[in-house]
């Protein structure tokens, strides 16, 4: 299944947030979207998964999702969005309970995703007992349990400290190597984008437009060891980003003064 965004525009009141965005996510591909804070990345992701209606343009699913996929477009949120009154197991069960599954089948799925995210020992813990990194692992396990065709990830690492971020990034790379999932990965962090993205879409400051789309031809699993080649891409991206970031920064200051 492919996800195609055609000429998406969106506004809130008279604030233009997105303008003429076209992009696609192919099967097994991670598309990173990077842009300064407030440029409409989260909005774009909400539109992509059908949580909001775009003001203009179309969002298309091309091709059927895999037959066993329970929720083809599945989100991973920055703030984890776990139910505090359910245990780790309960949070995963939540998204399976509305599907017609035999109870042993449901149980097997939960066991499987818990073991794939090394969470088996935490199955009965409540979210308040978990660190941020563990909470995001639970959210990843929950997403995997519905066998998504495309994951929509909104700054999944931004609420975490640097060490945890690095660990989870390794997990993502490992996960991708095993499962070849497709994802739209939103971030404002250049490093995350170059480590994970097959293609990187650079958005301008608000209203968000596509400034450039960059292909990175180094296989995801080799990137950790080919830092020098990656650095070339990082530098180029930073050139693109810094002007936008600086302008976005000044914009906020102007707005505060006015």
């Amino acid at each position: 299944m492919r996800l195609v965004l055609e000429n998406i525009s969106h506004r809130y009141g008279n604030v233009e947030v997105l303008e003429g965005i076209s992009l696609e996510v192919k099967e097994g591909e991670i598309v990173a979207i990077i842009g300064p804070s407030g440029c409409g990345k989260s909005t774009l992701l909400r539109l992509a998964g059908g949580l909001e209606k775009p003001g203009g343009g179309r969002i298309l699913q091309e091709g059927a999702p895999p037959a066993n996929s329970l929720n083809p477009l599945t989100y991973i949120f920055q703030d984890f969005a776990l139910l505090p009154w359910r245990t780790v197991r309960g949070n995963i069960a939540l998204v399976l309970e509305d599907h017609k599954l035999a109870s042993d089948q449901r149980k097997a799925i939960i066991e499987d995703v818990l073991s794939r995210t090394s969470l088996l020992d935490f199955a009965h813990a409540y979210p308040r007992q978990l660190s941020g990194g563990m909470k995001q692992r639970v959210a990843i396990a929950r997403a995997l349990s519905v066998r998504p065709a495309i994951m929509l990830m909104d700054e999944p690492l931004s609420a975490l400290d640097a060490q945890t971020r690095a660990l989870l990034m390794e997990d993502f790379v490992g996960l991708w190597r095993r499962e070849q999932f497709s994802a739209l990965y939103v971030t404002h962090n250049l490093q995350e984008a170059v480590q994970l993205g097959h293609r990187i879409v650079v958005l301008s400051r608000r209203p968000g437009r596509v400034r450039e789309i960059i292909e990175i031809d180094i296989p995801v699993e080799e990137r950790a060891s080919r830092a020098v080649e990656l650095e070339r891409h990082s530098r180029h991206l930073w050139q693109l980003m810094r002007d936008e970031a600086r302008a976005a920064d000044r914009e906020l200051l102007d707005a505060a003064n006015g």
């Binding site: 998964g49 949580l51 329970l70 929720n71 477009l73 599945t74 989100y75 949120f77 703030d79 969005a81 139910l83 939540l94 998204v95 509305d98 929950r142 519905v146």
Partner: peptide, 10 residues
């Protein structure tokens, strides 16, 4: 955000 999560999982 929890309600939105619920909707996003159908």
């Amino acid at each position: 955000s929890l309600i939105r999560m619920g909707q996003s999982f159908g």
